[in-house]
Design a protein around this nucleic acid. Structure first.
Length: 937
RNA sequence: GGGCGGUUAGCUCAGUUGGUUAGAGCGCCUGCCUUACAAGCAGGAAGUCCGGGGUUCGAGUCCCUGACCGCCCACCA
């Protein structure tokens, strides 16, 4: 029986089934719309940041996917044409590294294997391990369109990469040249500035004496002392620079020095860049191994001498040091200098050392021949796109970060000396040494016609291809008349959800490339595309980082990585999703704490048991011959002022909650959305509404039982839909059960999101809303009196089970509410007799047992009990309360008596304060009277 | 060296354009196995909103300043 839910909520028992069902039934596939469908809906499109094929799902992914999935499911239920595209990235350097590691373990190297064999091996590896993360995503119910899954090296995406390269080349925006680049000696490739991570490193500053050569060509006996952190690079020194105004060295301007260990004569040059304060004020110049020196070399027309090979061993230029590793060479050079008394000193020095982002090897700045993108024209557009507001960042500050980077951008080194990736479509001619770049593989040199051409061995930076994804996944560059529906429907995408760590790597590149290449794709109506519609996405939402419970960054080496799959197994996907959503306030990192998850598993359990309770009553109703048609589950019951207070109230609260969730999700406030639902479902629906409705569900005796059940089912079914984007599994399970296996859609995810149409929370414009709102006011008073009685019972230590008698004194309006709903008060506060007394009688307080009244603004309540009243405790309590009210009055008066306040504060604030003051005064009067009537201490 | 974010209850965090008595979850204390749920119910305690100054009728919120924590960017050997 579908209605039979097990007694305890067990996520593992339901989640696998639905995860598999959603994929099998292709529920989230979004086919290419036909031309006739294009106009009728708005699209909501997200491109999932493609995880590396090397990847395993970690908490950061799960967080990112949860946020996206909530938005995607929400938009889908709101009736938008929703598309979420999954894929994986070939991640050139990272993947190649892993496979190299694997074959090293097998005792071979990629060089021994050869390029073709190695690349085939990576493909094999990718087929074997590459899908792991996708499988995990499926298990977590990520509602992407699996039919559109891509891999960045797929043929159609490779076509886009090649087209992009060729176009940029043709436009003169790609050039090849010898520049200083960051070189990773382990990966044996150039890497971009972004792929270098800097680390403070305790090193030394060595001071080395360079002999001065006189005009006669002989050493003068004088020395010029330079300071360096990297003595081994001196083998490539071509000059020593000093500041032109530095008095200490003025006499050496234009002189020559003899480079120690090498013997080369090098000039002393002057340059403003040198700061006299640092070190000795004299800088050795090594253009091939330092970016500053390279620039210096360019300015002064100096040669560059590269003294290291690809693996950062000293090459033949290094003479006797040839073959030594750079650090071994350093030691030996320092030792040799010392031996020769050329070492003037060694100082401790902390400097920033660059490491390879991937393998953490110390980066070697090195002169080499690479391909670059002349980035400024692309950056200009990308800056304009954000400045003109075509792309909106959330949180906003990332827009500033982005612009700051974009405005100081350097040319992008796009070539990598790797084997795994998109090969650069450039051919070198052995005869004329010119380059041929083409869309198709050339057979002859385009310049001299020679067939002695070979393709460049370099591949492209991974981010070059992923930067093109927003256009390439929709078919660019082949956007033809018959083949453009995807592009028209989905470009620009709506939103990018990602982490700030790839803001520059990926987000910035997508904006540059997207704006550049979509530019000449005509709009659906044939008009020219402007910048506004060239952007790859209209909004960027940057999420926070997931850290461990102690705010430490999760890392394998620290051993504090929380495996989402493990946590999911323990607590259920829904609870983990809810945890992440409820902690996702923008701008703050998430300290992931399983205590929270435990709490949200309890929440799921609460929902589960509410469902069991409801199903139990559906069954009981059936036995009594009452059946609620499923059609009414999802349509709002018609409220009248005769409807029960709890019906009117719960519908008011539900609509208010739906409204809040709507506002929250519009602003990416996942925490607000989650908390609003949590409070509603637990604090209002379960704690109050269900407890009250129990009074009504007597199907044989009570005529209103059917109506009560109808409202109950409506609110519950609506709540499931409201919650579904955040907790898709449990809501799916219960929703199907609610419809007894015959739901109106294949999935709750395809049903409609609760709307707030008829409800104007602050307007009360229509009668339904007014009736529901009145329900809220009545319920406020009922909750107040029930809470008062409960608290009083505890205070005077009445047994939990015992029923008590109470007296209430109130004006007619409140009295009427209590009278009508006496059954509610009786049940929820465990009251047997409810007696109304006049205000005069209450004030008379003749009997000593009547002394302990509880005073409220709109009513007073008295809980009867047999024991003697503890007058001391009463007095203390009253005094405390009196002090509190006096403070409120004093505070209110201070403001109200201030002419500035009444003149300048808005009317509603002044009015509110007056009311607060009056209420406090009323209460204070009652309290003082009660205090006076107590017997003296 | 620039730039940015943070500091609110024991813990993790909310707190709209300044506005009435600063909130939640977890934890803690007390009492309850009240048949949907002990993964629960009911009640309760708990805060110098980092320090200092200023603007304002009014500041957790805005401005200045200091401290501490964190992040990003940067070519100083």
């Amino acid at each position: 029986m579908p209605h039979d839910l097990s007694k305890a909520y067990d996520p593992t028992a339901i989640e696998d089934h639905w995860a598999e069902y959603w994929v099998r039934e292709k529920l989230f596939a979004q086919p290419t719309p036909g031309p006739e469908d294009l106009g009728d809906k708005s699209s909501f499109t997200i491109l999932l940041p493609p995880p590396n094929v090397t990847g395993n799902l970690h908490m950061g992914h799960m967080f990112e996917h949860t946020e996206s999935d909530i938005l995607i499911r929400w938009h889908r239920m709101c009736g938008n044409r929703v598309l979420w595209i999954p894929g994986t990235d070939h991640a050139g350097i990272a993947t190649q590294m892993l496979v190299e590691r694997q074959i090293t373990a097998e005792g071979t190297t990629r060089q021994q294997m050869g390029r073709d064999k190695f690349v085939e091996r990576v493909w094999e590896w990718r087929r074997h391990y590459g899908g792991a993360i996708l499988g995990q995503m499926k298990r977590l119910g990520t509602s992407v369109d699996w039919d559109r899954e891509y891999f960045t090296m797929d043929e159609r995406l490779s076509v886009a990469v090649r087209e992009a390269f060729v176009r940029l080349y043709e436009q003169g925006l790609i050039y090849r040249g010898a520049y200083i680049v960051n070189w990773c000696p382990r990966c044996q490739t150039a890497i971009s500035d972004l792929e270098v991570v800097y680390d403070e490193h305790k090193g030394h500053l060595w001071e080395i004496r360079y002999p001065v050569i006189g005009d006669d060509g002989k050493d003068t006996g004088e020395f010029l002392t330079v300071a360096t952190t990297r003595p081994e690079t001196m083998l490539g020194d071509v000059a020593v620079a000093v500041h032109p105004a530095d008095e200490r060295y003025k006499h050496l301007h234009g002189k020559k020095l003899r480079l120690p260990l090498v013997g080369r004569e090098i000039p002393v040059i002057t340059d403003e860049w040198v700061s006299p304060e640092f070190g000795t004020g004299a800088v050795k110049v090594t253009p091939a191994h330092d970016p500053n020196d390279f620039a210096l070399g360019q300015r002064h027309d100096l040669p560059s001498i590269n003294v290291m090979d690809d693996t950062a061993h000293i090459n033949a230029e290094g003479g006797v040091y040839a073959g030594l590793d750079r650090f071994v060479a350093r030691k030996k050079i320092v030792a040799d200098l010392e031996e020769m008394s050329l070492l003037a000193g060694v100082k401790d020095h902390v400097n920033n050392v660059g490491h390879c982002d991937r393998c953490k090897t110390m980066v070697e700045p090195r002169l080499s021949l690479q391909w670059f993108v002349k980035i400024q024209p692309l950056a200009d557009k990308a800056i304009a796109a954000v400045k003109e507001g075509h792309i909106k960042f959330t949180p906003e500050m990332y827009g500033k970060t982005y612009l700051n980077w974009m405005e100081n951008i350097h040319d992008w080194c796009i070539s990598r000396q790797l084997w795994w990736g998109h090969r650069i479509p450039a051919w070198h001619c052995a005869v004329c040494h010119k380059i041929t770049v083409g869309r198709d593989d050339p057979t002859k040199c385009a310049h001299c016609g020679s067939d002695q051409i070979t393709q460049s061995t370099d591949v492209l930076d991974t981010w070059f291809s992923s930067g093109l994804l927003p256009v390439s996944v929709f078919g660019w560059p082949n956007i033809t008349e018959v083949n453009r529906a995807d592009f028209d429907a989905f470009y620009p995408t709506s939103l990018l959800v990602t982490g700030f760590d790839i803001l520059f790597f990926w987000v910035a590149r997508m904006i540059m490339l997207g704006c550049w290449f979509s530019d000449d794709v005509k709009m659906p109506d044939g008009s020219a595309r402007t910048l506004k519609d060239s952007v790859p996405f209209r909004e960027v939402y940057i999420h926070a980082l997931v850290r461990d419970a102690n705010r430490e960054k999760m890392s394998k080496t620290k051993g504090n990585v929380v495996d989402p799959i493990e946590i999911v197994k323990q607590y259920g996907t829904d609870a983990v999703r809810f945890t992440l959503a409820s902690m996702a306030s923008p701008g703050t990192d998430i300290a992931f704490n399983v205590a929270r998850t435990e709490g949200y598993r309890a929440f799921a359990n609460k929902i589960w048991n509410a469902a069991r309770f409801i199903f139990m009553n559906v069954d009981r109703a059936k036995e009594a011959g009452i059946t609620i048609e499923p059609i009414s589950f999802a349509s709002a019951p018609n409220l009248t002022s005769d409807s029960s207070v709890e019906s009117r109230w719960i519908i008011f609260q539900f609509n208010l909650t739906a409204h809040r969730v709507d506002l929250a999700l519009k602003e990416y406030r996942f925490d607000d959305a989650a908390n609003a639902i949590y409070k509603f479902f637990w604090g209002q629906f379960c704690d109050w509404y269900l407890e009250i409705v129990k009074l009504r569900l007597d199907f044989n005796m009570n005529a209103s039982a059917e109506e009560a059940l109808t409202v109950l089912l409506y609110v519950f079914e609506s709540s499931l839909r409201l919650l579904s984007p955040i907790m898709p599994f449990i809501t799916e399970e219960i929703w199907h059960a609610l419809y007894d296996g015959k739901p109106p859609h294949k999935s709750i995810a395809l049903s409609k999101y609760p709307s707030t149409d008829w409800f104007a929370p602050f307007g009360n414009r229509d009668p339904q809303s007014a009736i529901a709102g009145a329900g809220k006011n009545e319920m406020d008073e009922l909750q107040l009196v029930i809470n008062a009685i409960r608290a009083r019972r505890k205070e005077i230590r009445i047994e939990e089970k015992a029923l008590v008698s109470i007296k209430v004194a109130a004006e007619e309006q409140i009295r009427s509410i209590f009278h009508t709903n006496a059954d509610i008060i009786q049940r929820l506060a465990r009251v047997k007799d409810l007696e109304f007394v006049s205000v005069q009688d209450r004030n008379a307080k003749k009997k000593h047992t009547d002394l302990a009244w509880q005073a409220f603004v709109s009513f007073d309540v008295f809980v009867e009990y047999e024991k003697e009243i503890d007058t001391d405790a009463e007095r203390e309590k009253l005094n405390k309360e009196i002090a509190r009210q006096e403070k409120i009055i004093a505070n209110s008066d201070r403001q109200l008596n201030n002419p500035g306040f009444t003149a300048k504060a808005p009317a509603h604030i002044v009015e509110g304060l007056k009311k607060q003051r009056d209420d406090a005064q009323q209460l204070l009067d009652k309290l003082r009277r009660d205090l006076d009537s107590l017997p003296p201490a």
